[in-house]
């Protein structure tokens, strides 16, 4: 069965509709990436999945006893809060030193456990967050813009790490990303979100979909050229659900 299935989900904040009628499922072992402009409801979708936002209608179903690992978007640790990597890793219920050390190794940062969280570089910090999520051998890993603040080589390396994690543990991965080019190469399936699901499919299919082009344009850099191929359909037609895909909806973030 699916690890996660989102059924006809809508999320509203007051009068603002952040998400409507979203259907999504994640199968064991696959990497699914959600892309979408600012205000497209990506974060709301994640919040509904981890339970910090109430759906106004629809459901989020998790496989019973699903082990979920979560890597937050950005973690600001106040400079007044002293905490070592090891302590941070073992914050959750009864995690042994050995287990923490193994997770750090799997995330590519085996030697940082004695350091203060505040002394880590951006890349190390994100890997520690990944390591923390790996504790308890999750079946599903959720990553919310996990590479924000990393430079391009940094985030490419981070995504390679994610792929390595999937290869070694077989866990499924659902992530939100801005970095279209990297995402496109690392994902099995891409879901393009803008309040609802505009289009989804393999990276190649999504990259050439007119809805995707309407959101991100065709000039998103050379990396996408990989997926550019001849189409027999028209990019400029009005699609049936006639709303403005390019308008941004800031409040949803």
């Amino acid at each position: 069965m699916s690890l996660l299935s989102v059924e006809d989900l809508s999320v509203t904040y007051g009068a603002h509709r952040a998400l409507h009628n979203v259907n999504l499922s994640v199968e064991p072992g696959e990497i699914v990436t959600i892309v979408g402009p600012n205000g497209s409801g990506k974060t709301s979708l994640f919040k509904a999945i981890i339970g910090s936002a109430e759906p106004s209608s629809g459901k989020v179903r998790l496989k019973p006893n699903l082990r979920v690992g979560y890597v937050p978007q950005r973690l600001h640790i106040d400079p007044t809060l002293p905490i070592t990597v090891d302590r941070f890793m073992r914050l959750a219920a009864r995690v042994g030193r050995g287990e923490a050390a193994r997770a750090l190794e799997a995330a590519g940062v085996p030697d940082v456990s004695g350091q203060q969280m505040s002394q880590l570089s951006g890349g190390q910090f994100q890997r520690v967050l990944l390591a923390r999520a790996l504790i308890g051998a999750p079946e599903l890993l959720l990553l919310d813009e996990a590479t924000q603040g990393l430079d391009q080589p940094g985030s490419a390396a981070f995504y390679r790490q994610i792929e390595a994690v999937r290869r070694e543990t077989g866990c499924a991965i659902l992530m939100i990303s801005h970095e279209l080019h990297v995402v496109m190469s690392a994902s099995d399936r891409v879901v393009c979100l803008n309040g609802h699901i505009c289009c989804e499919g393999t990276p190649a299919v999504v990259a050439s979909a007119p809805e995707y082009r309407a959101l991100f344009g065709t000039g998103t850099g050379g990396a996408l050229a990989l997926y550019r191929h001849d189409h027999d359909h028209d990019h400029d037609h009005d699609h049936e659900h006639g709303h403005d895909h390019t308008g941004s909806r800031e409040a949803a973030e």
């Binding site: 919040k47 981890i50 339970g51 979560y70 937050p72 978007q73 973690l75 640790i77 959720l142």
Partner: peptide, 9 residues
């Protein structure tokens, strides 16, 4: 540390 992290835990 982080509200979302808390929810996820």
């Amino acid at each position: 540390l982080n509200e979302e992290l808390a929810y996820a835990s």
